[in-house]
Amino acid sequence: MIEIREAVINDLPEITSLFRNTILHINSKHYTENQIAVWASGADNEKKWTARITKNYFIVAEANNTIVGFAYLTQGNYLDGLFVHKDYQRQGIGAKLLRVIESQVIMAGFKEIKSDVSKTALPFFDDYYYEVEKKQMKHLKGEVFENYIIYRTL
């Protein structure tokens, strides 16, 4: 049974651990070792994660009191992150998080949701009728990442 709830600051260690481990184990299929190390190091910035949890619409998916996924919005309709625990992939958790996020965007009065997504995540969003606006190269700590700006009209 998966429960969706808003994140609280006490969730921070589980959220950052899930973020790091998902990147290390799932995204490594599409990115180099150096890219993965740089990306996963984003889990170390507790100040940034604290701000994400406290200032944004940030939800977690729980199974048996363990956080197995999370998603959050910035700017009302920008899906800034959606991650599912490496051991809980392909169980409908990402889809459930996405539905709740999209509902929040609609309730906030927006007609469209946007996101930047990795090569790894693109097929997931394609399954939910997201369109690619453009492919881009993002620079982070000396590494260049190929990703995609996607959107969906709600």
Results as ranks from 00 to 15, higher is better:
Met1Ser: 15
Arg5Gln: 04
Glu6Lys: 15
Glu6Asn: 14
Glu6Gln: 14
Val8Asn: 14
Leu12Met: 04
Pro13Phe: 08
Glu14Cys: 12
Ser17Val: 03
Arg20Asp: 13
Asn21Ser: 06
Leu24Cys: 04
Leu24Ala: 08
Lys29Asp: 14
His30Arg: 07
Ile36Gly: 09
Ala40Lys: 09
Ser41Met: 08
Ser41Asn: 15
Gly42Ser: 08
Lys47Ile: 12
Ala51Pro: 08
Ile53Arg: 04
Thr54Ala: 09
Thr54Leu: 14
Asn56Thr: 14
Asn56Met: 07
Tyr57Lys: 12
Phe58Leu: 06
Ile59Val: 13
Ala61Val: 09
Glu62Ala: 13
Asn65Arg: 11
Thr66Ile: 05
Thr66Leu: 11
Ile67Ala: 07
Gly69Met: 01
Gly69Thr: 09
Ala71His: 10
Leu73Trp: 05
Leu73Gln: 03
Thr74Glu: 15
Gly81Pro: 10
Gly81Phe: 10
Gly81Thr: 05
Phe83Gln: 10
Tyr88Phe: 14
Gln89Tyr: 07
Gln89Val: 05
Gln91Pro: 00
Gln91Glu: 10
Gln91Lys: 15
Gln91Ser: 01
Ile93Met: 04
Gly94Asp: 03
Lys96Arg: 13
Lys96Cys: 07
Leu98Ser: 12
Ile101Leu: 10
Ile101Phe: 06
Ile101Pro: 11
Ser103Val: 02
Val105Arg: 06
Gly109Thr: 09
Ile113Trp: 01
Ile113His: 02
Ile113Gln: 07
Ser115Ile: 08
Asp116Leu: 03
Ser118Cys: 03
Thr120Leu: 05
Tyr128Ile: 03
Tyr129Leu: 11
Val132Ser: 04
Glu133Met: 06
Gln136Arg: 05
Leu140Trp: 00
Glu143Lys: 03
Val144Thr: 11
Phe145Asp: 00
Tyr148Arg: 05
